[in-house]
Design a protein around this nucleic acid. Structure first.
Length: 849
RNA sequence: GCGGAAGUGGCGAAAUUGGCAGACGCGCUAGAUUCAGGAUCUAGUGGGGGCAACCUCUUGGGGGUUCAAAUCCCCCCUUCCGCACCA
């Protein structure tokens, strides 16, 4: 018995009130309404769609979740609710709406749980998918569950492998030995994008460098297009585009070589400040630069430099990258020749030079680069000024910091006296002409390291044969199945699974080994949006016709945390598949919306902080519609949402008032005709005006940036007005009833995307047999919405002093005359003539004395 | 350090071709109902002043443009986010 009573009533002190309140509560029987429609939708499956060339399509996608052991949290609910409002709205507008759901199901947490609880990652994942599916179903969000997919399904990952092979064929997947980011806790390597402030993005453990032979995807080949095409993404947040642009980090400069004295070797450097090239006083090279080892072989400096390189290697990324740390370095004893002026300068191995960027060596101009300046001061290296600020003389020995601004060239040979911006172009051209240097574009973006030394992931479909080398698994042999029935161990599971690891060479038939690393899970999620178009296709990764119909995604919704990772990778995949001729478009997501986080007590909701509100609790005690309403109303969707129990109560009250409003009016409207009679009295015209203005406002709010909060506020205003509408006297009845009927029909439709259960129930109670979602989105009747009177504010010297009621669009002279005739204005005028009168039609008059 | 976004009542927030600041909700106050608490309903609710009509101040701070500024410009402060020796 007690179990069926909503929890929110249990705070009641005694059983008497208990009952009374229960009765009152049932004035809005949300539980039975929601249960009823839940059952009907479960059976009718209104989200099921197929390609239909007669209807415009709309693909609304929410970022699919990782099936973690903890329940669905409010962040998920917010994400999916936003998507659902859009889906239902677009449906009502007549679009053929695709709204799929699936599981980003490979990944490390499954293995970590296995370590902890001794459950097989597969079992763990499947169980979680079951639990979360149940929770999602309980939310009655419109998903076409026929299209459900999980990236750990063989039927999915065989195509992930197939796509990998396409990359390999195009030369976009390759293996190289290279120092990589290694996370000891996760026992695997990480891509650059997955290292945040020197630490693993998942477990926050500091990463270390390890030299390993790994698989990479050549995303750098697409750097320019990934950057350029950001311009195509008109409906993406600027913030995300900026982050991607910064990550790609394009910079234009000059690469040139310096001869190494007494050898026939040269050292390449890259600079964006070629205007300062005459100011080189020394050169710096990354201590681990391979050329260094070669050049120093047999020299006395070799040991010292090697020791320094070792020391630098021991530093963590953070320490090495810290700008606080004094810059250290060591003279290699080598001398280089500056090709522009023939000066000989020393070469230092320095810890502030990164092997990863540019050529791993730099020209050092202490006068005009802060880092070089600091290093030069520490090592007593000369400083040579080659750019003077206009109207000022810089003295090298008195400088306290580098001068990095623009100025005029000095000590720069034939370029002296030029403005440095101009000199930059001229020096570059001259160096190209002389064959000393060339223009080069550098990117910060690195190739994507995709090997993972983990079990629960998509196997990389490659084979190693002692005789034939590295070979791809033939397409017809896909999928390379991840073996499930093998002993569980913390690392090296696939390596020690002999049935898996041992195979035969597809070329020569001899014994060979399989690749036993799996792919980064971000690969799985880089193409899932394509699979949704034809999730059961046995012949293709994605059916060309289906993809042509559904793609690109019209609206993608998710968290900002994927601004670079997932979104950049997906764009890359789409471009490669486009180049492969498999897709006609080259950007996957037309519009992106990033929702804000859900907070409680100013902090992110999390289990460890113990400040979570579960979806189950909300659904049980307040209902889905109230939960949706709160999430949508409490803050604009892109902003953070602070959870408030009282705010939830507020929405609950609103929905109950809506319900009671219909309870009152529906019985009165049964025989009312739909046609609005002519010559309505003022009050009825007013009701209609409010209705049509509300339709207009909500439509605009939904079209522009999903302003759900103000849309709901508009509904509340309408409802507040309607609550003051009285039952009509007999002579008023015909007009009032038909107006109220129009109001009730349209208000229910306005509610539908936000409060689907309530709306559907009201719709049915008004005598409809079909669903409200097929009833069309209401249209604003411009004539009905038009104001009959306007209040014009009268300002005197910019301050509101009076008001004027007029008919709309009255001409300016008339308004001015009326304003000047106003009693208060005449008082304030004190007989003076106005200096100026500004009239803004339908808004305001400002009289300046 | 560089780049970006933001700062409005007690709180969440509205208002942008510059035109009534604070819509809507929460909270609070008073009244109705009730033995009482809760719930519900009605009214009020930015600050200061005034019996009142009304006056006055107010959108992080300071300046400016304008008949008119939350909105545009300049300087400063704070918060959040991203990048951070990228040559």
């Amino acid at each position: 018995m007690v179990a069926t009573i909503p929890y929110r009533l249990k705070s009641c002190r005694n059983i008497c009130c208990f009952w009374r309140q229960l009765v009152e509560e049932q004035q809005y029987p949300f539980q039975s309404i929601e249960e009823k429609w839940h059952a009907i939708w479960q059976q009718k499956k209104p989200a099921r769609v197929t390609e239909d060339s007669d209807k415009p399509k709309y693909y609304c996608l929410v970022m699919f979740p990782y099936p973690s052991g903890s329940n669905l949290h409010m962040g998920h609910v917010r994400n999916y609710t936003i998507g659902d409002v859009i889906v239902r709205y677009k449906k009502m507008q007549g679009f053929n709406v695709l709204s799929p759901m699936g599981w980003d199901a490979f990944g490390l947490p499954a293995e970590n749980a296995a370590i902890k609880n001794n459950i097989h990652p597969n079992e763990y994942t499947r169980t979680n998918i079951g639990v979360m599916t149940k929770q999602l179903l309980a939310l009655d969000i419109l998903y076409d569950w026929n299209r459900e997919l999980a990236t750990c399904d063989e039927e999915y990952y065989r195509w992930t492998q197939w796509i990998f092979l396409k990359f390999y064929e195009r030369g976009l997947a390759y293996k190289k030995k290279h120092p990589v980011n290694w996370c000891e806790t996760c026992h695997t390597v990480l891509a650059n994008e997955q290292v945040i402030e020197g630490a693993c993005w998942r477990c926050k453990e500091l990463v270390v460098k390890k030299e390993l032979d790994q698989w990479y995807l050549k995303i750098t080949d697409y750097a320019e297009r990934l950057l350029q095409d950001l311009d195509k993404l008109k409906q993406w947040p600027e913030r995300v585009k900026t982050m991607q642009a910064n990550w790609i980090g394009r910079s234009e400069g000059i690469e040139f070589k310096l001869k190494i004295d007494n050898t026939d070797q040269e050292l390449s450097v890259f600079t964006t400040r070629i205007d300062t090239v005459f100011g080189i006083t020394y050169m710096s090279i990354a201590p681990e630069h391979p050329l260094l080892k070669e050049l120093l072989a047999g020299k006395p400096e070799a040991a010292k430099v090697k020791a320094f390189a070792e020391k630098v290697k021991m530093l963590s990324e953070i320490e090495r990258a810290s700008t606080e740390k004094p810059k250290e370095g060591i003279d290699t004893g080598l001398r280089l020749v500056n090709p522009v002026n023939g000066e000989k300068v020393p070469l230092y191995a320095a810890d502030y030079v990164l092997m990863e960027y540019g050529t791993g060596a730099i020209m050092a101009v202490p006068a005009h680069d802060q880092r070089d300046f600091e290093f030069a001061k520490n090592h007593n290296l000369p400083i040579k000024v080659v750019i003077q600020p206009e109207g000022q003389i810089l003295a090298a020995n008195r400088m306290t910091e580098a001068y990095v601004e623009d100025g005029v060239q000095v000590n720069s040979g034939q370029f002296d006296g030029m403005k440095n911006r101009e000199a930059m172009q001229k020096i570059a051209a001259w160096m190209e002409q002389e064959g000393i240097g060339k223009k080069v574009i550098n990117y910060r973006l690195r190739d994507w390291l995709i090997s993972r030394q983990r079990y629960w992931g998509c196997p990389i479909p490659m084979i190693y044969c002692d005789d034939c080398g590295i070979l791809p698994v033939p397409e017809k042999e896909l999928p390379v199945t991840l073996p499930l029935d093998i002993p569980y161990q913390p690392s090296g599971m696939l390596e020690s699974a002999r049935d898996f690891a041992e195979t035969t060479c597809p070329k020569c038939g001899k014994k060979a080994r399989r690749e036993t690393d799996t792919m980064d899970t971000f690969i799985d999620s880089s193409w899932y949006y394509l699979r949704y178009a034809s999730p059961r296709d046995q012949e293709h990764a994605f059916n060309p016709e289906a993809v042509k119909y559904w793609m690109p995604v019209d609206q993608y919704i998710g968290g900002i945390e994927h601004a670079i990772l997932h979104l950049l990778y997906s764009r890359f995949f789409t471009k490669v598949l486009h180049d492969q001729g498999l897709l006609e478009f080259d950007e996957p997501f037309k519009a992106l919306f990033t929702q804000g986080m859900v907070l409680k007590d100013g902090q992110v909701m999390s289990k460890s902080k113990g400040n979570t509100v579960s979806a189950d609790y909300m659904v049980e005690n307040y209902g889905i519609d109230t939960t949706r309403g709160f999430i949508l109303f409490a803050a604009p969707p892109e902003r953070e949402l602070e959870w408030s129990d009282q705010g939830v109560e507020g929405i609950f009250r609103f929905l109950r008032r809506v319900w009671l409003l219909y309870e009152r009016w529906i019985p009165l409207l049964t025989n009312t005709p739909n046609k609005i009679p002519d010559g309505l009295p003022e009050k009825d015209r007013e009701i209609r005006r409010k209705l049509h203005q509300t339709i207009q406002r909500i439509t605009v709010d939904l079209e522009n940036d999903f302003k759900f909060n103000t849309a709901i506020a508009a509904m509340m205003e309408l409802m507040n007005d309607l609550n003051t509408v009285k039952e009509p006297s007999p002579e008023e009845a015909a007009g009032r009833m038909s107006v109220m009927k129009e109001v009730c029909l349209n208000f229910a439709k306005l509610c539908a995307p936000f409060f689907p259960h309530l709306a559907e129930e009201l719709w049915q109670q008004m005598g409809h047999t079909g669903t409200i979602f097929a009833a069309g989105w209401p249209k604003c009747d411009a004539a009905g919405a038009a104001e009959e009177k306007v209040t014009i504010v009268i300002q005197v010297n910019g301050k509101v002093r009076s008001r004027l009621e007029t008919t709309p669009d009255m001409d300016k002279q008339k308004v001015e005359a009326k304003a000047l005739a106003d009693d208060r204005v005449r008082n304030l005028a004190e007989g003076r003539k106005p200096k100026k009168v500004i009239v803004i039609p339908n808004k305001l008059v400002n009289i300046v004395f």
